[in-house]
Simulated assay, not measured.
Amino acid sequence: MGIFRIVAALCVMLVVASCGPPSKFRTYRGPEVTQVLVSKSERKMWMLHHNKVLKSYDIALGFAPEGHKQFEGDGKTPEGLYYIDRRNPNSRFHLSVGISYPNPADKAFAKSMGKEPGGDIFIHGKTGFNGDNKGDWTWGCIAVTDREMEDIYAMLRDGTPIFIKP
């Protein structure tokens, strides 16, 4: 009887331990994402394998979404060809992947105007935002739901091109 109680207690402890919060880190086993396409005017983002759409997302943008990001604090989301260049598993916004803004042309333009180009542009989740998460609210980033960000984080690799069109 004593051994039965010990085994039963261990089983209960294992079940309780496995009931923790689910991991935000997912596994992706599908086709490689070869490019990301963003349409600011449609508020959509697509993960593509060559020309085939793997997944599409509704997005939020910078709080001043019209036009290309040029300066620090302008609230605009960049436009043009960039690359996924880093990953942040400890993002204030759940998870995030970095976009290579500013590129050399962005830096040169801002400098010619006597300003800074800004930076830290990411695709990220919504946790950490204290507002209502509706409309365009970021400082120039691309926002999706936290659950969607978990999939995106698993799907994207550094070096993946991202084309952001107006």
Rank of each mutant, 00 (worst) to 15 (best):
113 M>T: 13
135 G>K: 03
127 T>R: 15
146 D>C: 05
104 P>T: 07
129 F>P: 08
134 K>P: 02
104 P>G: 04
156 L>C: 07
115 K>I: 01
132 D>R: 05
111 K>P: 02
119 G>N: 11
152 I>S: 04
82 Y>P: 01
86 R>F: 02
97 V>C: 01
90 N>Y: 11
112 S>K: 07
147 R>W: 08
105 A>W: 10
100 S>C: 10
115 K>D: 01
140 G>E: 02
101 Y>C: 06
103 N>K: 10
120 D>H: 10
84 I>N: 00
150 E>D: 12
122 F>W: 12
105 A>M: 12
107 K>Q: 13
87 R>N: 09
133 N>V: 14
140 G>R: 02
154 A>F: 12
151 D>S: 11
146 D>N: 10
127 T>I: 13
86 R>Y: 13
137 W>A: 00
81 L>H: 11
147 R>N: 07
99 I>T: 05
151 D>L: 09
157 R>I: 03
118 G>R: 04
129 F>H: 13
131 G>E: 09
129 F>N: 14
158 D>V: 09
139 W>D: 13
141 C>V: 00
120 D>P: 00
135 G>D: 05
108 A>K: 15
87 R>D: 15
88 N>T: 03
121 I>W: 01
84 I>G: 01
108 A>F: 13
139 W>F: 13
122 F>I: 01
121 I>A: 05
110 A>V: 08
87 R>P: 06
89 P>H: 09
102 P>C: 02
101 Y>N: 14
99 I>R: 02
112 S>T: 10
151 D>T: 11
86 R>P: 00
131 G>H: 15
110 A>N: 13
158 D>N: 15
142 I>Q: 02
131 G>C: 12
154 A>L: 11
116 E>L: 07
119 G>K: 09
117 P>L: 00
143 A>P: 15
132 D>C: 09
146 D>F: 03
161 P>Y: 04
110 A>Q: 05
102 P>M: 06
89 P>R: 14
147 R>A: 12
158 D>K: 06
110 A>I: 09
160 T>G: 05
99 I>H: 02
86 R>C: 13
116 E>W: 04
147 R>F: 09
83 Y>F: 15
132 D>N: 11
105 A>C: 09
105 A>T: 09
95 L>I: 04
162 I>M: 03
160 T>N: 05
156 L>M: 13
90 N>C: 10
125 G>S: 13
